[in-house]
Design a protein around this nucleic acid. Sequence first.
DNA 1: TGCATTCAATTGTACGTACATTTAGGAAGA
DNA 2: TCTTCCTAAATGTACGTACAATTGAATGCA
Lengths: 251, 251
Amino acid sequence: MPLLDRTSSLPLWAQLETALKARLDTGEFNERFPTDNELVEEYGVSRHTVREAIRHLNRTGILRRERGRGTVVNHAEFEQPLGALYSLFQSIEASGVEQRSRVLALDEVTEPVIAANLSLPAETPLMLLERLRFAGDEPLAIDRAWIPMTIAAPLMTTDFEHTALYDELERLCGVRPDAGWERIAPLLPKPAERELLHLGRNDAALFLERMSTANGQPIEWRTTTIRGDRYRFVSEFQAGAAPSMVAHRPD
Amino acid sequence: MPLLDRTSSLPLWAQLETALKARLDTGEFNERFPTDNELVEEYGVSRHTVREAIRHLNRTGILRRERGRGTVVNHAEFEQPLGALYSLFQSIEASGVEQRSRVLALDEVTEPVIAANLSLPAETPLMLLERLRFAGDEPLAIDRAWIPMTIAAPLMTTDFEHTALYDELERLCGVRPDAGWERIAPLLPKPAERELLHLGRNDAALFLERMSTANGQPIEWRTTTIRGDRYRFVSEFQAGAAPSMVAHRPD
DNA sequence: TGCATTCAATTGTACGTACATTTAGGAAGA
DNA sequence: TCTTCCTAAATGTACGTACAATTGAATGCA
């Protein structure tokens, strides 16, 4: 059993990290990753050192630690956290520039699929707010939001041309999304949407789907089709510092 | 000043992180960041807790800690956590199954635009690694990475068909990206790429650009064109608190 | 003055302890 | 059999200590 070299200049946790990484690569831990205490026993180091090693090992997101359960190996999933996107789009939504939008629809509808997405019965009445959003004079995105009527009823008379949905939701309904998830996919828009967005035949767009919850309750399903030609989406960068790099796209 | 609430369910380090982030945003620490011991004194917590808070705070790469000197605020504009998007692609890169890739090119090149993006002189020699990456039997993405030759020279003989770039970079060059940023855009691939990715005329893709840094030094520029038809990219978010994914991870 | 040495300060590493929180599973009782 | 409760196990949080490694400034000497 090749243990750790305490005379090495390499920290113990780094040696342990290397050792664990090697064992991970063999698939030894596919079934079950050792617990902290087992590694403490096996390598004769303190739990602090074990955690330090795992902390570094997990830079790559290989592991997932779950309180009360243990540490499990993160096998490849194709649904993975993007994390930053929310705040990213939020910044556009919140930026003063893009206040303007044209309401395409504000109706009460039933959408079995979307109701199911919100964990509601199929025939649950939903408010549908469909907007064409502008950045300056050019359209930026088509935005559709579904909210259960039980929550959204007070919003049906709102003028959403100049009002942010979440603000109004908080003001009139007393709820504000505090969590949720979002997924993103590329999309070649259909002719109808292409026209609304002033896009050409070969212009791609981004398609975002978002489910928002408040206090654990699903309250909103939203889809957004965003023009991708004029705007780029950058994952978290520091306030005030917009990347000024020149694009280098394969065209 | 009882800034921290010991009865709160929020961990002390999280409260401290929030407090420090607020003070950081005011610019209070632009000249000099407090030492561990000063924060221990000021907030009445142990050094362990202070370090935990700083560790989390530094997810964003705002701080740089230097032994013997102290903690300084990082004014490097583009240093940001790879966090979200990074781990996403990392999961494919790290998973045993989808390791397969075909090397399309491994050359020494000069690319003035990309060199400039990396804050290097225009004629700086760069290694270009171009790969077609597979998930199962189907191609998933076209991946191009540029790394300065001064760093990447040892990699020129590597067989990247079955080797992860970042692992090799760490093993042979002793550096691993620890920060950076990434941006995403939709893209309709050109015929050549369409063929490589087995895409039809109307299939859109995602175009990712990433700059990675290690210890504040730009070390990699990468572009990735990812098929968007088979895979979706999902993010979770949580307003106010740190992203939920972070909570499960020991960093 | 110039140079080398010393020393205090600061972060890194590593050990220890204790308790909280969450989970899974078994025990006990209806 | 089913449900409830309890316990053990696992990770998270938080405290403590000590020493190592590095830096920068102060000190002392030629």
